[in-house]
Design a protein around this nucleic acid. Structure first.
Length: 525
RNA sequence: GCGGGCGUAGCUCAGUUGGUUAGAGCGCUGGAUUGUGGCUCCAGAGGUCGGUGGUUCAAAUCCACCCGCUCGUACCA
């Protein structure tokens, strides 16, 4: 190796841990805008904000991590100096349960509350999936009835629309954990000893929005190769159900909306099968899954939710019963809901990407009880703000940074007295509510000042040199108009002499003239 | 976690049996032009060739391991 290389000091490499990201000005503005809209809906529904910290004791977050007991698996954890384990929250629900339990005597139930915040998951990140991301939650604590769940579904729908997603471009799909639990029971997967197998079956069902019914059938039975055929790529272990049982379950799920509505006496205008997969539903092993008590109870609740939504004018174009909705695997006990976008999301490369759900939630009757011992039923949902923002951005419904860059007051004279005058001009503009800044770089390179203004997107530059000063005027340079005029000029001498887009006004008229020009520019965009 | 692809300047990429001092375009900085963005011309800065180890007289190039990005899959409370 050469001497030159070994002498060179190692520079510290600027980098971020993977799965974390910096947010730009336009990201932050877009997020703020979204959050304000969501908050507007929640406030209108009579919810109040509450905030909990990013850290909780690990045991308060609960052990809802299947197969994993180590505190660092999936969550970011560290030991406090008294050796107690603390973790960064991975959602906003468990911390809320802790907050309610801790203040149970001070809080009037039912407690309607919302909050937004960063949550952290120590998982492999991917496009649109981060290890720190923002959620916005609403919960009703202490409300046992399905009316609270129906309200959640309707509020979700309203939120989607408030965010500019048109009716028909989203749907809130509703299911009930009791239905899935009952199905598991009916096919002989009840009880503790089958917990693992049950999980596999539910995961397979949850894949229906990603895989074809036939692939899901493979997952329910023998397993699936991700390379497309036998022996190619990675093998996913199947649930090991008998073929006819798997078909029965799959048929129940796929034809679920139709079946649930008919069994609950809620048929709406002859809508039928939601997928092409057909199966001999009741003849197969497992019998008629509707005969199961839990399935029956779950369907009844879904019928009530649906009736409530319909009575309030929320049709199946907005809120829809769908037995394939699984949602998280551990703490939900009743109705679950999921918000899904129905339009294609296209990424920067022009590829259509599977977007999946942008929010969801459900009933978690056991979560507060862990702390209090008494039953405190609750239901709520969560919006994936970061994820939804990605979708809206790609859709062009957000993220167009409409903040106008500041007016730049250029500096032609670096003397103390002159700088005071430039500062004064800048302050005058600010006092009139106009974003403005005085150039803070090396004033001696005037070309750089305008180049700065150009790159920053400044709409206007203010120029006052000694000539203007003597005459009591300032030059207002319309950067947008100037760019247009400059395009027609070829020689540099001419270009420099032309001062494109500029006009002179009396010093005293500066604010009025800038205001006028900004208004005119806004008209033309 | 498992499997595939990729990793050379700020960005996009050249660089083939391993062989002098690793290149281009764009961008950046300075100048032509001490008061005008763009155009043009000139000059300059910028590289641990992802990292470590190995093979070799010689490695950006070959081998091993690791790291990172990416696609699929798994996991996702």
């Amino acid at each position: 190796m050469s001497d030159k290389k070994s002498k060179k000091p190692h520079k510290l490499k600027a980098r971020l841990p993977r799965g974390f990201t910096d947010r730009t000005a336009s990201d932050i503005r877009a997020t703020d805008e979204m959050v304000a809209k969501i908050r507007g809906v929640f406030e209108r529904y009579g919810f109040d904000p509450v905030e909990t910290p990013a850290f909780e004791y690990t045991d308060a977050l609960g052990k809802f991590l299947p197969d994993q007991d180590r505190p660092n698996e999936g969550v970011f954890s560290l030991q406090d100096d008294d050796e107690q384990w603390m973790s960064l929250r991975y959602d906003l629900t468990a911390p809320l349960a802790r907050h309610v339990a801790q203040n149970i005597n001070a809080i009037a139930l039912p407690y309607r509350t919302y909050r937004q915040g960063w949550v952290f998951r120590n998982e492999k990140p991917g496009p649109g999936r981060f290890r720190q991301f923002m959620q916005f939650d609403a919960d009703t604590v202490g409300a046992p009835g399905v009316q609270a769940d129906a309200e959640m579904a309707m509020m979700m729908a309203d939120t989607m629309e408030a965010l500019g997603i048109k009716r028909g471009d989203y749907v809130i799909r509703v299911n009930n954990r009791k239905v899935l639990d009952g199905v598991m029971e009916a096919i002989g997967l009840g009880g503790e000893e089958n917990a693992g197998k049950r999980l596999t079956v539910l995961r397979a069902i949850d894949k229906l929005d990603k895989f074809s019914p036939n692939d899901v059938l493979l997952l329910l039975t023998t397993g699936r190769w991700d390379g497309g055929k036998q022996g190619v790529g990675d093998f996913t272990e199947g649930a090991g159900l008998a073929a006819n049982v798997a078909e029965n379950v799959l048929g129940f799920i796929l034809d679920g909306r139709f079946q649930v509505e008919s069994r609950a006496g809620l048929m709406e205008g002859g809508k039928g099968h939601t997928a092409s997969f057909t199966s001999p539903v009741s003849s197969a092993v497992g019998g008629d899954l509707f005969d199961n008590r839990s399935v029956h109870a779950g369907v009844q609740e879904l019928a009530n939710i649906q009736q409530s939504c319909r009575a309030s004018g929320y049709g199946p174009d907005r809120i829809r019963i769908d037995p394939s909705v699984v949602r998280g695997l551990e703490y939900y006990t009743g109705p679950v809901y999921e918000a899904e976008l129905l339009f294609d999301v296209v990424n920067e490369k022009g590829e259509t990407v599977q977007f999946g759900s942008v929010g969801g939630g459900g009933r978690y009757d056991g979560l507060v009880k862990r702390f209090t011992g008494q039953d405190v039923p609750a239901t709520g949902f969560s919006i994936g703000v970061s994820r939804l923002m990605t979708a809206l951005k790609n859709l062009g419904k957000l993220g167009t940074d409409d903040m106008v860059a500041p007016v730049l007051v250029t500096v032609m004279d670096g003397g103390t007295e002159a700088l005071g005058r430039y500062q004064k001009m800048t302050q005058d503009l600010r006092e009139a509510g106009i974003r403005a800044e005085m150039y803070q770089g090396n004033w001696k390179k005037f070309g750089n000042q305008l180049r700065y203004a150009d790159r920053r997107g400044c709409p206007i530059a203010i120029i006052q040199g000694s000539d203007e000063r003597e005459k009591g005027i300032v030059q207002i340079k319309d950067m947008i108009e100037g760019r247009k005029e400059a395009a027609a000029i070829e020689s540099n001498e001419e270009y420099r002499a032309a001062r494109p887009g500029q006009f002179e006004v009396a010093e005293g008229d500066l604010v009025a003239e800038v205001t006028k020009l900004l208004a005119a520019q806004a008209e033309n965009t």
